[in-house]
Each structure stands twice: as C-alpha cells, then as structure tokens.
C-alpha cells in the first residue's frame, strides 16, 4: 500500500474540518495550536481519528513534533510506509 502525500494531506484536511470552527483555509503550514486554536486534548482527539482513518498507530510520543498539518501528513506517510515494509 503506497499513498502519495497529496492524497494523505487531503484526507487529513477532511478529518480536520469538524475541528476547524473558524473555517481557516488549511495548508501544510497551518499550526494546530495557533491557527486553529486547538488545545492539546483536541489535537489528541484528532490524532485518534487519523489513526482510525489510516489504520495505523500514531504514538502520543510524536505529538511534540507535530505542530502543523504538513508535519502530521509526513508522519502519517512515514508510518504507512513502515507498515507496508513490515508486510
């Protein structure tokens, strides 16, 4: 299973929409805590949705390095690639 970054980005954006109460235009540089004003608990809830959407484990340990939508996207791509290597 390989998925390109753009697809992953789009999928993640659609998962973010329900949390995007201020209707911010999403880009790779959108910062969760600043631009979307999400607190850490909400980011964890979003992360849970991403886990289920892509059927991967995204450890909480990664969160400090995941501040933007782009960083989330890259992390998911990397985790998906690792999964397919294992198979």
């Amino acid at each position: 299973m390989t998925q390109n970054v753009d697809e992953i980005f789009k999928q993640i954006c659609s998962l973010i929409e329900p949390f995007n109460t201020k209707k911010v235009t999403l880009s790779r540089d959108t910062i969760f805590s600043v631009d979307l004003e999400l607190d850490s608990l909400t980011v964890m809830d979003l992360l849970a949705e991403i886990e289920d959407e892509f059927d991967i484990t995204v450890p909480l340990n990664l969160l400090p390095d995941l501040e933007t939508v782009g960083q989330f996207t890259d992390a998911v791509q990397k985790l998906l690639a690792e999964e397919s290597l294992d198979e």
Partner: peptide, 11 residues
C-alpha cells in the same frame, strides 16, 4: 507515560 521511554497509545 511522559517520564518513561515506552510508546504511548491512547484509546
């Protein structure tokens, strides 16, 4: 969890 070195998953 933060103090240790394990992988942390939340349900």
């Amino acid at each position: 969890c933060a103090l240790g070195n394990a992988t942390i998953v939340r349900f």
